[in-house]
């Protein structure tokens, strides 16, 4: 007759955990199934980095600046991932009809966002690594890692803060509607400039660097440069340990803000019936 197997429903923390991995899964598997993406997603940053490296060579910059440009170029992969695959993602999902399924499914939306972040982070770390390896081989960049543990801590906390920001942006961009596309476009070069992707952010002066520190990659990149290239704190904006502490605060603030923004968005969206409206 009928199979009487009992279906166990996930609830509570397990539901959160299961939802997160369910959303992360397509990103991780997608990267493996569609390997040709790797070509374009590493080629474009490699081209940009090469341009900046040759510019540095044309103006006789010291060799460590080649490494600065390579590291900055690799970090652009994370920023682009946050903009296009985190911040804009709920907008794309709405456009394609997935958002309504997320909303009516029992899994929490925060877990969906976290899954996007985890999947995107793993996928992008692979790409950033390829960019660093390729550019390092092409341009003969050498690294002097002075404190590997601190470097690992800076990277992990930077990513937590960055993807926390991406989760917050996802709600903001969803409200922005059609302008989400343009917002993502607008937040590329200006952020590369303000965050010092291709030069030490210290060169922009104290106040600009301070304001730019709201973007986690500003301090993260600055700390990583100090720890990877010379161990010389004079090239940095702030000491690496101080930057790590600020990044920790940013991570907590962004993730908490993302939680509140998402709750508010869902509440207002349900009340006004605009959560899945596709005209905007």
């Amino acid at each position: 007759m009928f199979d009487q197997t009992r279906v166990t429903k996930a609830t509570g923390l397990f539901l959160f955990w299961a939802t997160m991995w369910a959303r992360a899964y397509p990103r991780m598997v997608g990267a493996l199934r569609e390997r040709s993406w790797m070509f374009f997603e590493t080629l474009l940053p490699v081209l940009a980095v090469s341009g900046y490296v040759f510019l540095y060579r044309a103006i006789n910059a010291p060799p460590e600046y080649t490494g600065f440009a390579v590291l900055g170029g690799a970090m652009t992969a994370f920023w682009l991932n946050v903009l296009w695959s985190m911040a804009s993602q709920l907008y794309w999902d709405k456009d394609q009809g997935n958002l309504e399924m997320y909303v009516v499914a029992p899994g929490p939306l925060m877990a969906v966002l976290l899954g996007m972040a985890v999947g995107g982070l793993l996928m992008t770390t692979t790409r950033a690594t390829v960019i660093i390896v390729v550019c390092s081989l092409l341009f003969g960049v050498t690294y002097q890692i002075t404190d590997p543990l601190l470097l690992a801590a800076v990277f992990i906390v930077t990513m937590a803060a960055l993807y926390g920001m991406g989760m917050l942006f996802a709600s903001v961009f969803l409200i922005a509607g059609r302008e989400a596309w343009h917002l993502s476009n607008l937040l590329q070069e200006p952020i590369y400039l303000a965050s010092g992707f291709y030069f030490p952010v210290k060169a922009l002066g104290f106040w600009v660097a301070t304001f730019a520190s709201i973007i986690p990659l500003t301090l993260g990149l600055d700390a990583m440069r100090q720890l990877i290239f010379s161990g010389d704190p004079t090239i940095g904006f702030l000491p690496a340990t101080v930057e790590l502490a600020i990044l920790l605060v940013l991570a907590v603030v962004f993730i908490a803000a993302a939680y509140f923004a998402l709750s508010k968005l869902e509440q207002v969206g349900r009340q006004q019936g605009r959560l899945v409206e596709r005209r905007r």
Partner: peptide
């Protein structure tokens, strides 16, 4: 603003790179 900010930022990256070195 949108049409101006992005290209200006792009060129300013080069300006800062150039200024830091020279």
């Amino acid at each position: 603003v949108y049409s101006i900010v992005r290209p200006l930022a792009g060129v300013l990256i080069l300006v800062v790179m150039y200024a830091v070195i020279t």
